[in-house]
Design a protein around this nucleic acid. Structure first.
Lengths: 230, 230
DNA sequence: CGTTAGTTTGACGGCACTCAAAAGTTGTGG
DNA sequence: CCACAACTTTTGAGTGCCGTCAAACTAACG
């Protein structure tokens, strides 16, 4: 019997035996909305997305970003109602499941059930990091952390060619992730650019010095990926 | 076959067939530390605890609070290394599991495996709410949200007698949860008290008007607990 | 009754917000 | 190919929320 496993592309194929279709979405599409009771659960096969919540008066907070291999809509499947919205940052390809078959998956493929828990634990770990950032880091540290974080995430799914990465986000996204105003976000990113840590291009960000960003943020990066037990 | 189920006390007893012992901890005890590789996974049977992360220079951020029914150390079990610390706010009773038997649980009791995922999804939902709070709410709104949130959590496990609740926390905990300084936290709580929304007692907080707090924060409370499907 | 932990208050400063406007970019239609 | 609208980035001026520093006050405890 296998020990603990990471969620590898091969397993996605396996899970695909449960799939009911495939979905292609354009950049800017809203996949799921807060309060909806969608019957679907997705796996992201390619592209970038993000999820967010809003206050009654419209203030928006981006919670996390989604990359290939991530589950989209698990909360809705498990809790019943979506408590956040999901929007595409780039063209997406998704694998669609019927969420009411999740029970079957746990029963018939306990290893995959465990993998879903593994994914949920990873998400929790990332949210923990974001909370630390919003609560206790300065604007500059927050920005440095966010870009280093996104770089590591992209690298973990093989999206980095050479040392630089182009993030498909606007400064508005950065502001709504960091909990800052767009004006102050711009001034903060400018300082990072002046230090040659990043270069901001129109509608995207080039990462120049990841370790410099991590040092500035006081962030060690994600933990080593777990090896199989015994 | 049952539909989706909530994690009820009865199930705790069921899970207890996996337990390897019981643990009693005093208030202030550190149960798990960031970076540790504990071999244990706990279920909280009674008491309050919280988990937190710190930056290299000591700044602390409280991530969430733990009440009876919560799993303690799931991240460590699934990822391998604890990425946060856990500390008791009151005397605790915990049920101890060997974390390497988690695989067995998923294989032999898929329903319980699903329940663990349900718990993880609940935690994720709470962290989403906290992120929205830290990122986009003012100090006063944040404080109102936090106290209303803790009230609902306590109520969901039957800890509220009558309408008021005494939270076993200091203003230092509130400050480290809201991402504020202790001085500003004090001034903010004072304003809430002046509005008769709460009453602050030494080392604890009495909740006087939950709906007033929720309205101030622009928070609707947790979603309805999911009913079984079909 | 001294010590320690927690709460409270005031003065002052700074980081980040709002307001305002300009410059650059993208996309669309004539 | 150009005009125009919409969006994004950039910059400056002024404001204010919240942080830091400092000190008093209260309660618990040995």
């Amino acid at each position: 019997m296998p020990g603990f496993r990471a969620f590898e592309p091969m397993e996605l194929t396996f899970i695909s035996s449960f799939k009911t279709g495939e979905l292609v979405a354009e950049s800017g599409t809203t996949l799921l909305s807060e309060g909806s009771h969608s019957a679907h659960l997705y796996t992201l096969l390619s592209g970038w997305a993000f999820r967010y919540k809003t206050l009654p008066d419209g203030r928006r907070q981006i919670l996390n970003y989604m990359l290939p291999g991530d589950l989209v809509g698990l909360q809705g499947s498990v809790i019943g109602e979506m408590q956040h919205s999901v929007e595409a940052l780039s063209p997406l390809v998704l694998c669609v499941f019927q969420r009411d078959r999740l029970n079957d998956l746990f029963r018939n493929h306990p290893g995959l059930g465990f993998d879903i828990t593994w994914l949920a634990a990873q998400e929790e770990r990332m949210l923990d990091d974001h909370l630390l950032s919003l609560g206790r880091r300065t604007a500059m540290e927050r920005a440095a952390y966010l870009i280093a974080f996104l770089y590591h995430r992209a690298a973990s799914v093989g999206l980095t060619s050479s040392r630089n990465l182009y993030l498909p986000i606007t400064q508005m996204h950065v502001a709504d992730t960091l909990g800052l105003s767009i004006v102050h976000t711009n001034k903060t990113l400018r300082k990072l650019a002046d230090r040659s840590l990043i270069r901001w291009l129109d509608r995207s960000c080039e990462v120049l010095d990841v370790s410099g960003l991590m040092e500035l943020a006081g962030w060690d990066g994600p933990p080593e990926r777990r090896r199989p037990l015994i």
